[in-house]
Simulated assay, not measured.
Amino acid sequence: MRLLSSSATAFIKRAYPVFFFGLPTILLIAFSSAGGWLPQALLFVPVIALLVLVVCWLSIWDVVDEVVDEGDRLLIRKGQVKDCVLLANVIFIEVTRNKNPTRLKLHLAVPGRLGQKIVFIPQGTQWIPFARHPLAKELETRIDSLKKEPRPK
């Protein structure tokens, strides 16, 4: 058994929203203490809060909490929901490099309890500009070998 997901996932999923929702709140307090309510502040803070909500929805809230490698399968946990995904069920692996931290998205042939796409932050996240992510490459190799194995009849 090997943990594939970053141990910082839980922190990231909780700290980002607190920080980014706290920032508009601090700005609202600063605007109000600087001499009353400004019309710009009443417009600015809700717009920032909405943008933060969209960013969190697109980048953080779909990330699973834990991915554990068990050879030919992955054990996945998101909150109280646990699922077991066979590597042979993975169609392809997408690496999202334009977000920090890097995310791996597993596209499944048959949806599991957590849906058809499993997104996680890999351990040892590194930015390699023109090469395939090492974990994605390793998983793809293992998936290909599992799919080529003859199945017992």
Rank of each mutant, 00 (worst) to 15 (best):
T25H: 12
F21N: 00
G35R: 05
Q40A: 15
V18H: 13
P46S: 05
P17L: 02
K148R: 15
K153D: 08
H133N: 12
T125Y: 04
L23A: 11
V64G: 03
I26Q: 00
S32Y: 14
K13Y: 07
W37S: 06
L106R: 00
E70P: 05
T141N: 05
H107R: 12
I128V: 15
V119M: 07
F44H: 10
W61Y: 15
V85I: 09
P134C: 04
E94T: 12
E138T: 13
L114T: 12
A30T: 15
P122S: 06
F31G: 02
L135S: 04
I12R: 15
A88F: 14
P150M: 06
V55L: 05
Y16N: 08
S32R: 13
V54Y: 14
V85W: 04
W61I: 08
G112T: 02
Q126H: 10
F20T: 07
M1F: 01
F31S: 02
S33Q: 11
V95N: 13
I128W: 09
W127Y: 13
I26P: 01
K78C: 05
V85G: 01
T102P: 00
P129R: 11
N89F: 08
G112E: 03
V64E: 01
G124V: 03
E138Q: 15
A49I: 07
G124K: 01
R113A: 14
D144S: 15
E138V: 04
L42M: 15
F92G: 03
Q116D: 14
V90D: 05
Q123E: 02
D69T: 05
F92D: 00
E138P: 08
L139S: 02
Q126Y: 05
K82F: 02
A8F: 04
V45P: 11
G124Y: 02
F20A: 06
F44A: 11
V68G: 03
P152K: 12
R97M: 11
G71L: 01
C56S: 11
G124R: 07
C84Q: 10
N100F: 13
E140Q: 14
P122A: 07
M1A: 04
L38I: 07
I93C: 08
V81D: 15
F11E: 02
L42P: 10
G115F: 01
L135C: 01
I118A: 07
